[in-house]
């Protein structure tokens, strides 16, 4: 299959890469650029474990072809870390133990960022709605909701 040259900015870093047109954004990020924090779960846009932020919008990377994202900015969970410092959302998930196996966690964190960027002080119901596209089998969600609330609290008055 003929490859197409695309340009992306991934976590602030410019990338030029030749990819076949049928490659998903998920597989490009995982297999070509080695961002393993982007996880593959259901491959049907249902579980949210492959969530990334594409030009400011939360997307399921399994449902988008990499070539569709040509010229766009991509944020993965790896890009949320500032040097050795975790992003306040990541720190909140650590502090509140908002994970068990971790397979959904990175997607959950990007979904949380997407929520808090738009609504810095969400209610419990708004959190539930915002995370409805992120499947977690381990936690029963309670500690995830608490992590999101702790993140919102710690980010009050700051910019994400």
């Amino acid at each position: 299959m003929e490859k197409i040259t695309c340009n992306f900015v991934v976590n602030g870093q410019a990338e030029e890469i030749s990819i076949p047109p049928n490659r998903t954004l998920l597989h490009m990020l995982r297999e070509d650029l080695m961002f393993h924090g982007v996880r593959e779960g259901c491959s049907h846009g249902e579980c949210g474990s492959c969530n990334v932020i594409l030009d400011g919008k939360l997307v399921n990377a399994c449902l988008i072809l990499a070539v569709e994202a040509d010229g766009m900015e991509i944020l993965t969970v790896e890009g949320m870390v500032d040097g050795d410092n975790l992003h306040p959302i990541q720190q909140a998930f650590v502090d509140e133990s908002g994970m068990q196996c971790g397979a959904c966690t990175t997607g959950m964190i990007l979904s949380t960022k997407n929520l808090l960027d738009a609504n810095p002080d969400p209610s419990r119901e708004e959190i539930k709605d915002a995370l409805a596209g992120n499947f977690c089998r381990c936690t029963g969600y309670a500690k995830i909701f608490e992590s999101v609330e702790a993140a919102a609290e710690s980010m009050k008055g700051t910019q994400s």
């Binding site: 924090g37 650590v94 133990s97 994970m99 971790g102 966690t105 990175t106």
Partner: peptide, 18 residues
Amino acid sequence: PRVDAVEKVNGDAKYAGD
């Protein structure tokens, strides 16, 4: 805190498929 928490939030945790 869990001993695996940081690796699971920053994307470092490696699973078999990684």
